[in-house]
Simulated scan of single mutants.
Amino acid sequence: MKLHPRSTVAGGTAIAMLALAACAPVEKPDRAPATPAALASCAPGTLTTLSAGKLTIATDDPAYPPWFADNRPDSGQGFESAIAYAVAEKLGYARDQITWTRVPFNDALTPGPKKFDFDINEFSITADRAQAVDFSTPYYEVTQTVIAVKGSKITSAESLADLKQAKLGAQVDSTSYRAITEIVKPETAPAVFKDNDDAKKQLQNGSVDGIVVDLPTAFYMTSAELDGGVLVGQLPQPAGTPEQFGLVLPKGSALTSCLSQAVDVLRADGVLESIQRQWLGGVAGAPRLG
């Protein structure tokens, strides 16, 4: 998945509203959880990072809710900012040992050297991407969701069949786009957008009937960004492993194992679930399109 909300937060109100409801789906590890003792070999003094004793974390610019707050990744506010700091803390890095940098989504996934130790930016783990970069174990399980605006012909859709004649769209090179082509399979070729600013404009001017985004983004966009936004429903998971977000690292990074161990310990300790409840609480209860 990847389709960022592209507008400024009106304070923290919308995020706070999301945090009041039930918990988002909890990710399922694909291996036995690491133990805190296993992290003993992952202390800052033993890790090879871009800057000795420092951890450089990347995300996109702008960075939007509910993943980040006020376009300030260093605030610790928002789901992915909180996850990043929890991982860093588990590895033994204090806040003054963390540096944030900005990297466009697609640039982070290209082969070659990186200007970060890891990037957190709603990166879905896929086999194709794993040929160019490393992923940590997953920290969040994703559901793709169709949204529209009042007046669209799909606002009352209850099934995939109801979307077959719809004009849908999603961000280029995203798993949201793949969900349209592989799960919905509409009769009309989907539209491709460079980012959510473009997607929202085209949705509101009627160029498309709906767009596909991940579920937390769908809740935020329909409640805080779109005039007359409607959450149509969640799409089924693709066959096989559910879609999951992972931290991205350079291919062959010496940090991959340690970051995965940190994520596994956070999962086992219930920290990932707690962070989800705080920042993605409002994503439960959306209708499912069968």
Rank of each mutant, 00 (worst) to 15 (best):
Q165V: 00
V172E: 10
A199K: 03
Q131W: 00
K115A: 14
D195M: 08
K200L: 07
Q237K: 13
A262C: 10
D173K: 03
A148W: 03
L231P: 01
D264N: 12
T175H: 11
G76R: 08
F105P: 01
L235M: 11
R31G: 00
R277N: 12
L168N: 01
A224D: 12
I125F: 08
L50K: 12
K167G: 04
T110W: 07
V184G: 00
T155F: 05
D30P: 01
T35L: 11
T13L: 14
V230K: 05
Q165A: 13
S260K: 06
T143A: 14
K167M: 10
D60K: 10
D214T: 09
N106F: 06
P238I: 05
Q237H: 08
F116H: 08
P216V: 09
K251T: 14
G112C: 08
A38M: 14
S207G: 07
R102T: 08
S51W: 03
D134Q: 03
L280G: 05
N71P: 00
L39A: 13
K150I: 03
R95W: 07
I57E: 04
A32H: 05
Q165L: 10
A191V: 04
T241H: 12
D197T: 13
T241P: 09
T110N: 12
K201R: 15
A22E: 13
K251C: 14
A86D: 01
A43M: 06
P238D: 06
T59K: 08
G270P: 03
G78C: 03
M1S: 14
V146Q: 11
T145C: 09
P33D: 10
A191G: 06
K251E: 11
A161H: 06
L266V: 04
K28F: 04
T8M: 11
L255Q: 04
F219P: 00
S7I: 02
I183E: 07
E27Q: 14
G233I: 10
V146W: 05
G270F: 07
Q77K: 12
D195W: 01
D60E: 14
T137V: 15
A191E: 11
S124Y: 09
A166Y: 01
L3F: 11
T8H: 12
N71W: 03
K194V: 15
F193R: 04
T181S: 13
A170D: 05
E187S: 13
V213K: 02
D227H: 10
D117P: 02
R102P: 02
T241E: 13
A199W: 02
A268C: 07
T175L: 14
L20V: 13
A191K: 06
A38C: 09
P250D: 02
T217D: 13
K185H: 06
F219M: 00
V146T: 04
A254V: 11
A224M: 08
G112E: 08
I154L: 09
P111F: 06
D227R: 11
I147D: 05
L168W: 00
T13K: 13
T59G: 09
I15P: 00
D119W: 04
S75C: 07
E182D: 15
L235K: 04
Q234F: 02
D134K: 02
Q276Y: 04
S174K: 04
L280V: 04
K164N: 08
I147N: 02
D70I: 10
F118Q: 00
D74I: 01
K150S: 14
P190F: 02
I120C: 03
